[in-house]
């Protein structure tokens, strides 16, 4: 695997809150253009890993490289090559959906006002929201629409890497499947690399190229088929449990 093909490289990561060690000597690499799903039991630090990579948590030890640059000295150029969708959308409640999408553009770029509005409307259409969603406030949207609006904001600057924190949590199965498809479509047409923390076995089966399982404070990377053969008890239970069997059979794996 050449340097060019890896967009995120984590080496020897250690995160710790007080005396509780979350990750210890964790290595992870994410390839360009793949959808990586991150799974693990509650409290194993899936979201913490995501927050550490995007720079919201300071690691105790180890390095994180994103697009060939150390995240500790991350320039705003690299920062704006990442889009993040937080669990419940994290839309700014005092702004409309369109204004939310314009925030990163206003902050990082100098665009004519009319063009900014057009691009916001384009992102709204791309994530499958109706046109009248633009002037609405987040409180007027349903949970699924908020996630779509959050995704539109994450895509505002055409990022290279998209971070998703439990994107389908709280959606009904139909809405979750539609959101999975949307992520897959956008990922393919925009050539995105997606780093997705999830609990949703259907998402894992449907759209993830590789899966990172957080066990024993480290990750085990592999495809679904490789994990199925893993003998680690937690991984066994996760991928062979009744829920997993249904999800995997349904997707024809």
């Amino acid at each position: 695997m050449s340097e060019q093909d890896t967009v995120i490289t984590v080496t020897g990561l250690r995160t710790q809150f007080g005396t509780a060690v979350i990750h210890d000597d964790l290595d992870l690499s994410v390839r360009r253009g793949e959808v990586l799903g991150v799974v693990g039991g509650s409290g194993t630090g899936k979201s913490v890993l995501l927050r550490t990579i995007i720079g919201l948590n300071k690691p105790r030890a180890g390095t994180i490289e994103m697009l060939g640059q150390d995240t500790r000295e991350m320039t705003s150029l690299v920062q704006r090559r990442c889009g993040v969708l937080f669990q419940s959308g994290a839309l700014f409640s005092s702004l409309t959906v369109a204004e939310n999408i314009e925030v990163p553009m206003r902050e990082h770029l100098r665009l004519p006002h009319a063009l900014m509005e057009e691009l916001a409307a384009l992102k709204i259409a791309m994530v499958g929201l109706p046109p009248d969603a633009g002037p609405k406030y987040p409180s007027e949207l349903s949970g699924g629409m908020k996630k779509r609006a959050g995704l539109a904001r994450a895509l505002a600057l055409d990022p290279a890497i998209l971070f998703l924190d439990k994107p389908t949590a709280g959606l009904d199965p139909i809405g979750a499947a539609a959101f999975d498809n949307l992520i897959r479509d956008l990922q393919q047409s925009l050539g995105l690399t997606v780093f997705m923390v999830t609990h949703d076995l259907d998402s894992l089966a449907a759209i993830c190229d590789r899966i990172a399982v957080l066990v024993d404070k480290r990750v085990r990377l592999g495809t679904m088929a490789e994990h199925m053969r893993d003998s680690h008890p937690w991984i066994q239970e996760y991928f062979h449990g009744p829920r997993a069997r249904v999800a995997l059979n349904g997707s024809g794996t």
Partner: peptide, 22 residues
């Protein structure tokens, strides 16, 4: 061709919104 796919994506997105006049 990769760029053409993007233009098409944008066109589809715009077409989805074109019918409604605000």
């Amino acid at each position: 061709p990769r760029h053409a796919a993007l233009v098409e994506l944008v066109e589809q997105a715009d077409a989805a919104h074109a019918e409604t006049v605000r």
